[in-house]
């Protein structure tokens, strides 16, 4: 899920919750409040420079990232996603996960429109699995 050498597919397309590091980072600081996430989504930072500026304004986030990414560098955009769409470190925020599920569903819908060989049963399993993600997080 990194930058690709393939022309036209040079950026991550969606906020992916990933790089989960269980129990390694506390989630009781102000930086995890929902308000910064809402602002980030509303502003919709697009370019890497803006993202880097945003990250520079949030040093605690950088410190966290260093602790979880080690030798694997993330792109600036991934850093933000890593910070805000990580289920575990976000304390199971239903808002962040709902957003991520929505993004994934949107992308899947687009792919389905373009045609898919996935059978009806597997399609049901995929959608039902994503529903279960929401259920699980909402009960945490």
């Amino acid at each position: 899920m990194r930058h690709s050498a393939v022309p036209g597919i040079s950026k991550l397309l969606l906020p992916i919750p990933q790089r989960l590091t269980p129990r390694s980072v506390g989630c009781d600081d102000d930086a995890l409040a929902i308000e910064p996430l809402t602002r980030f989504l509303a502003n919709g930072l697009k370019d890497s420079e803006a993202i880097e500026r945003w990250l520079a304004a949030h040093p605690p986030i950088i410190a966290e990232l260093l602790s979880v990414t080690e030798s694997e560098p993330l792109t600036p955009r991934q850093k933000i996603y890593d910070r805000y769409f990580n289920v575990e470190r976000h304390g199971g925020s239903a808002a962040s996960v709902a957003y991520a599920v929505g993004q994934v569903m949107s992308e899947l819908a687009r792919e389905f429109q373009l045609g898919s060989g996935l059978g009806q049963q597997d399609l049901h399993r995929l959608i039902d699995g994503l529903s279960a993600v929401l259920e699980t997080v909402s009960e945490c």
Binding site: L20, G92, G129, C140
Partner: peptide, 16 residues
């Protein structure tokens, strides 16, 4: 990518 975006989201739900 679309399949893996879904996969990673599901994987985090599974871990929880």
């Amino acid at each position: 990518l679309a399949g893996h975006h879904a996969f990673f989201l599901l994987l985090q739900g599974i871990i929880l």
